Every structure is written in structure tokens, then in C-alpha cells.
Simulated scan of single mutants.
Amino acid sequence: MKMKPILRKLLFMVSCLPALIGHAQTMDTCPSANGLKGKRIAVIGDSYVKNHKEPVENTWHYAFARKHGMEYLNYGRNGNSIAYSSPRWGEAMYIRYKEMADSLDYIVVIGGHNDAFKLDSIGGIDNFKEKLAILCEGLVEKYPTAKIFFFTRWTCKDFKGSDSEKVVDAMLEVCGNYSIPIFDCARQGGIYAASDTFRKIYFQGAKDTAHLNKKGHERFLKVAESFLLQY
């Protein structure tokens, strides 16, 4: 007995439902459907942000913004610090954040590398914390509707007990006081900056302990994206 055309059509539609439902669930959770398209993201920091001697377009934060259709603003400055101003490297971030655009949806602060080398000039870790607190409070007041994130510096050789560790821990503490999400790149970034072999592959030079090359940025993008998309 032949099946009527309308019955065959109904059976075909029913058989397709699981696939259609699965596709809808995937679209709801994929990165392109997270509402970031058209949003403005600003990244402020040191040469981690400026990308030292390579194009900004190679950075993980530029790739993140492009992937999600966001407007990208880069406020990176080589040699810059969170808490230390100098004629050569310019005003510290706790001052120059005021120069950023007024209307922003997302703000990413990447710093601490240079502060670790200038703790004596800054006046010690307590003074670093004070300047960082000014930056945190200033960002919250200037951008009350924006989502703010911090990223620490990488790890380094002899990290335990070093000024680098003190700066990283101070950033975790102060940002926590302001309920600002911060990612501990030194301990959770999967960037093995203390390894000579690793740096030959993923950094801008074998002796470079700070600046990722394009391959390094591509590696860290997955880590940073996972952290940011939680919020």
C-alpha cells in the first residue's frame, strides 16, 4: 500500500526535529551568538598590548574583537607601567586611563610586567597597591555600565618570592577588592615564559620574556576568550 504524499511529508518533518533542535542549541551557545557584535572594547596596557615590534593585528585581543565583530581600541604603550610615570615611557596607567574614549562596553587592562622592575621607584608594593586602587576605582566610576577585566604579567624564572610574584599577587588582591575579574596569567595562562625552548617558539625572540609572537597570541587567545566569555 502506497503512503500518501502528505503523510510522507509529515514523517520526514518529524525525523528532522532532533537535528533542528540540536542546531538551535549550538547556535545559542556559539561565540557568534553572545551579543558582542558592535560593542566597543578598549585594551590599555604596556608592550603586551602595543605588541612591541610586531603589528597590533597579531595580538590575541585584536583577534578576539575581530572574531566577535567588536569595535577595537588599543591604548598600549611600550615600557608603560600601572603605577610608575616617566619621561621616556609616559604617564602611568592609573593616570592616563582618563584619556580613553568615554563610551566603552568592555575594558581590558594588561600590566604589571614593568612595575615589577620598578618597585623601588614606585615606593614599594604598598604604593603600587595604592596606585592600582586609584586605577580600579577610576575605571569603575568612569565606566559604571562597562565590564572591566585585568590580566597579569606572565611567569618568569625564579618567580617564587620575586617582585614579579609580589606584583601579580597585589593585582589579584586589589582587583578582588573592587570585584573586578582578573586572570592570573602567571599561574594559569599556559604560557611557559621561564622556558627557553618555549620562548623560541611562541615569543618574539629567544631572549624575550614578555612579548608573544603571532603563534603565541593564537595559543593564548583560547585561554583569554574562555575567561572573558564567562562574563
Rank of each mutant, 00 (worst) to 15 (best):
S121N: 11
G124E: 02
G124V: 03
I125N: 02
D126V: 07
D126G: 05
N127Q: 14
N127F: 06
F128N: 00
E130K: 12
E130D: 03
L132K: 01
L132A: 09
L132C: 08
A133L: 08
A133G: 10
I134Y: 06
L135V: 08
L135C: 04
L135Y: 01
L135N: 04
C136D: 00
C136T: 01
E137P: 06
E137N: 13
G138P: 00
G138E: 00
E141N: 15
Y143P: 12
T145Y: 11
T145R: 11
A146D: 02
A146L: 04
I148S: 07
F150H: 11
F150S: 11
R153I: 01
R153N: 14
W154S: 13
W154L: 10
K157D: 12
K157S: 12
D158K: 10
F159E: 10
F159Q: 05
F159N: 04
K160R: 12
G161W: 10
G161R: 07
S162R: 10
S162V: 08
D163A: 05
E165M: 05
E165T: 02
K166H: 09
V167G: 12
V167A: 12
V168F: 09
A170H: 02
E173Y: 09
C175A: 07
C175K: 02
C175E: 06
G176R: 10
N177D: 06
N177H: 04
N177R: 10
Y178Q: 05
S179P: 05
I180F: 09
I180S: 06
I180K: 06
I182D: 06
I182M: 05
D184C: 11
C185E: 13
A186K: 11
R187M: 13
R187N: 15
Q188W: 05
Q188L: 14
Q188F: 07
Q188T: 09
G189E: 04
Y192L: 15
Y192A: 14
Y192C: 13
D196G: 02
T197A: 15
T197I: 13
R199M: 09
I201Y: 06
Y202K: 01
Y202P: 01
G205V: 06
G205Q: 09
A206G: 04
K207T: 03
T209L: 11
H211V: 00
N213K: 07
K214N: 10
K215C: 04
R219Y: 13
L221K: 02
L221E: 08
K222S: 07
